[in-house]
Design a protein around this nucleic acid. Structure first.
Lengths: 215, 215
DNA sequence: CCCTGTGAAAAGGTTCACAGCA
DNA sequence: TGCTGTGAACCTTTTCACAGGG
C-alpha cells in the first residue's frame, strides 16, 4: 500500500505525537529512526508506529529504519501543517490570555493572531501582543488574517453564541474549552477539551485508593 | 447485570459528560430523563447512553426513563466524585494561574488548593487565592492538604522533574499540559493534554479545504 | 405504546508474528 | 542480521434490533 486512501482516526490522533517526537530527536541528531525509538519518543508501542506510518506510505527502509527528516516532512504533509494556520481566540480572559502566551501554538504552526472579547475596555487594545476586537468584527478579522481555526475560551454561557459567530464567519474548525455540547452543522469540526472532565476521568481510577478531603 | 464488574474505559470517559448533562438538566427541572434526552445533552447517541449506564447497574425504568437525581448520584459515585479531591498545580505561570481562576474545577469537586513554583518571588505569597510553595515543600504540602491529584503546568523542560517530585510525594494521578512524554511507573495514572496536538488533529481535517497563510 | 436493558452483529483498533528486503 | 511492512488473530467499542416490563 502506498497512499492515504483514508487514514484511520486513531492514527491521525497519533501523528502529532510522532511529529513531536521527531522534532525532539532532530534537535539532537538527524539520520534514521527505528520504529522502536519513535515509539519511545511518542509513548506508544512499536507495532502501532509501523502500522500508523504504513498508512501514509512506504517511507521506511527494511533493516534500517526511517529517515527522520523525510518522515517528519511526510507526517507534516499528512497533517496539513506544512503551512501556518492562524488562530482567533474568542474570550480573552485568563484562559484565553494563557493560550496567547503559550509559545507552543506558534511554534507548531498555529499563531494566535487575534482575540475577540465583549469587554469594551479591552476592545481596540493589544494585550500580550494580540489585538482584541469586538464580536461584531469577527467576520472582518477572519477575512483579513486568513484565519481557519477558532478557539473558544469564553464563559460557558457565551460559548454557543461564539460558535455561531465563528461558523457565520466561515470558520470550519473549532477547539472549545467550554464545558457544554456545542451545536453545529456536521461539516464543522469541533474538538472539545473539558479540563474538569479530564480530572473526573482521573478521579475514577483514584476511587478507593486514597482517602479524600474530610478527616 | 447489576454492578460494575469492570467498567470499560470508553464508558468511564463518557460518564463525566453524562454528569455534566444531568447537572444542566437538573438546574432546570428534576423528574426523569430518557436516554434520548441524555444523549443530546452529552453529545453522543442513545444506544451508547443505555449501554454505558447498564454498566453501572439497572437504574432506569422501562417505558419511563431514569430518575435524574438518582442517576446523578450513581454516576458521581462510580466516578468517585462524591467527595472533594484537592489539587496541586506545579508551575504557576500563565497557564497555571488560568487554571486556578477556572471556577469549573472547584465547582466539579477539584479545588486547586496549592501551587508550586521555582520563582522565589512568588513563593510564600498567595496569588489568586492560591498559596505558592517552593518545590522542596511539595511533600509537606501534599500531606497537609490531603492532595490526591497533581497538575503539571510548568515549561516542558521542568515537567519531568515536577512529575518525579509529585510521585515522590505520593501522588498517583497526574494531569499534564507539557508537550512531552512523561516517564512514570505503571501504577501512576497520567492524562496528557497537549493543546498544540489537539490543534494539529483539527488541522488534519482542514487540509485542502481553505488556503493557509501565504498568498 | 414507550423506553430500558441486552444479546448479537458489525466496525474499528491493537497486537502478533513473520515474510521479505537492505 | 536488523527492521520494515502487513496479513491474520484478537480485543474493544459501537451499533442494531428487539424482548420485556411499566
Amino acid at each position: 500500500m502506498t497512499g492515504h486512501g483514508h487514514i484511520p482516526d486513531a492514527t491521525v490522533a497519533r501523528l502529532p505525537l510522532y511529529l513531536r517526537g521527531l522534532d525532539e530527536l532532530l534537535a539532537a541528531r538527524g539520520g534514521t529512526v527505528s520504529s522502536d525509538e519513535l515509539a519511545e519518543l511518542a509513548g506508544v508501542n512499536a507495532a502501532k508506529v509501523r502500522k500508523d506510518l504504513s498508512q501514509l506510505g512506504t517511507y521506511g527502509t527494511r533493516g534500517v529504519g526511517y529517515d527522520a527528516d523525510y518522515l517528519r516532512f511526510e507526517i507534516s504533509r499528512a497533517l496539513g501543517v506544512t503551512n501556518t494556520w492562524p488562530v482567533v481566540v474568542c474570550g480573552f480572559g485568563n484562559l484565553g490570555r494563557a493560550l496567547a502566551n503559550h509559545t507552543g501554538f506558534t511554534d507548531r504552526g498555529f499563531p494566535i493572531v487575534a482575540a475577540i472579547d465583549t469587554d469594551m475596555e479591552k476592545v481596540g487594545t493589544v494585550i500580550d501582543g494580540v489585538p482584541v476586537h469586538a464580536p461584531s468584527d469577527l467576520a472582518a478579522v477572519v477575512n483579513d488574517n486568513h484565519i481557519a481555526i477558532g478557539v473558544i475560551a469564553t464563559p460557558p454561557e457565551a460559548a454557543q453564541a461564539a460558535t455561531d459567530r465563528l461558523i457565520e464567519a466561515g470558520i470550519g474548525s473549532i477547539m472549545s474549552f467550554a464545558p457544554i455540547v456545542l451545536v453545529a452543522p456536521d461539516d464543522v469540526e469541533i474538538r472539545a477539551v473539558d479540563l474538569a472532565t479530564e480530572l473526573q476521568i482521573l478521579g475514577f481510577h483514584l476511587t478507593g485508593s486514597a482517602s479524600p478531603t474530610e478527616w
